[in-house]
Amino acid sequence: MDTFQAFMIRQEGEELKGNVERLTLNDLPEGDVLVQVHFSGVNYKDGLASLPQGKVVPQYPMIPGIDLSGEVVHSEHPDFKVGDLVLCTGYGLGTSHFGGFSRYARLSGDWLVHLPEGLTLREAMGIGTAGFTAAMSVDRLLHCGVTPDMGPILVTGATGGVGSFAVDMLSRAGFQVTASTGKIDKQKAWLESLGASSIIGREEIADTAPGPISKQLWAGVIDPVGGPHLNSILKSIRYGGAVALSGLTGGTSFESTVHPFILRGVQLLGIDSVYCPKAWRNRIWSNLGGDWKPERALGVGIKECTLQELPQVLQSILQGHAVGRTIVRLE
């Protein structure tokens, strides 16, 4: 192996250009483990990495791809040996450190997780950062005492990566799931196949009632969208409920009052999958290979692409056209 392919984004003046290039191992950054990448996943943050205003990459050139799975081919880390199957999500992968859209990746072994029993390398990237974030969100809701007998759970952005996996996992856990989407006409049957008991348009979340709180609708919410609608969501959470917030595709700010928190004991839970502590990270991945494995989402919601097709895929995810998950096959 003299050279290998990678999708590299370079800055040309005020613009960013992404192309498939041929690299050598000497082009890779430092790290104590070298991984032959088999699969990576396409995430919204990867799309942002391709935009000058995306503000997720401090310096170019950069190989995006914030998650990867593959086989260890060289290791100086005590926890990993040649032949180990591993995965990586988060940390600086694909933003400050060359990421998964490359046949080889050299990175810190501290970032790696052994592939859990019950998952293949392909399935791990079918889940990827999006499914991992969804599982963290479900875990936090359960930890905060939200149970199926408290009422329905709302999932916003339900046709996206985080949302679709959340629908699957929550329904498997016995929750009644209401899926919210802007693609209700085209994706209603698909969301029902994932386990959604009802589907509503995203405009139905908006609360026009006056006052700081409104009718109690949801025992909990998984929200990878963020933005102004979060105020309406908080106003409609049932007593003792919680919102797991993990995204910003709908915007970065919202207005609210203290009333949902002090009158109904509502909890707003921030979900950060990037620097999730190692012990929690390992536990979540173990769950994803076991009882939480999102079989339905993995079966019907995964598409594959090549490195050459990435520009179109990244554009689609930025425009909100993506449904389910797209993974990059590097084998």
Rank of each mutant, 00 (worst) to 15 (best):
R10C: 12
S137D: 09
T129R: 13
L68E: 02
V86A: 03
V328G: 06
T159M: 01
P210S: 14
L93D: 08
Q36D: 08
G118I: 11
H143A: 15
D185T: 14
T257V: 10
W285N: 02
A322G: 01
A242W: 11
Y91C: 11
G227V: 06
S96Y: 06
R281W: 04
V225A: 10
F165V: 05
H74C: 04
P52G: 07
H143D: 11
V177Q: 03
I153E: 05
L330G: 03
D149T: 12
L87M: 13
E204Q: 15
L112M: 04
I213H: 01
G70P: 03
R202F: 07
A135P: 03
G182F: 12
G70H: 05
T252Q: 09
P64V: 06
W292V: 07
K55I: 02
M150V: 01
L68H: 03
A322I: 00
Q308L: 11
S75W: 00
K17W: 06
L298E: 12
L25R: 12
E21V: 15
V177H: 09
D223M: 08
N19P: 00
I262P: 15
F39Y: 15
T120G: 06
H77R: 00
N231G: 15
P58I: 07
G70D: 08
V167T: 11
L230C: 05
V274I: 15
W280F: 04
I302E: 03
H229W: 10
I9N: 00
V57A: 09
G247L: 02
V42R: 05
Q312Y: 03
V266N: 10
Y60E: 11
V225D: 06
L51P: 02
N231S: 14
G195C: 09
V56T: 07
Q267S: 14
Q53A: 15
V313L: 01
P61G: 13
G250D: 05
G226R: 05
H321C: 08
L87I: 13
T95A: 10
F7L: 11
Q216C: 05
R281Y: 12
N43Y: 13
K55Q: 13
G299Y: 05
M62R: 09
F80Q: 00
I127H: 08
I233G: 02
L170C: 02
R106H: 08
Y104G: 07
R264A: 10
L245A: 14
V35R: 05
P228S: 10
S164F: 13
T95H: 04
I200S: 03
R329M: 04
G201T: 12
T3K: 13
I199G: 00
R329I: 01
R122V: 03
V72W: 00
D32R: 02
F80V: 01
A135Q: 14
G250K: 09
L194G: 04
G220P: 07
A322N: 07
I184G: 00
S50I: 04
W111N: 12
C88H: 14
S246I: 04
E309V: 06
R325N: 10
T156C: 09
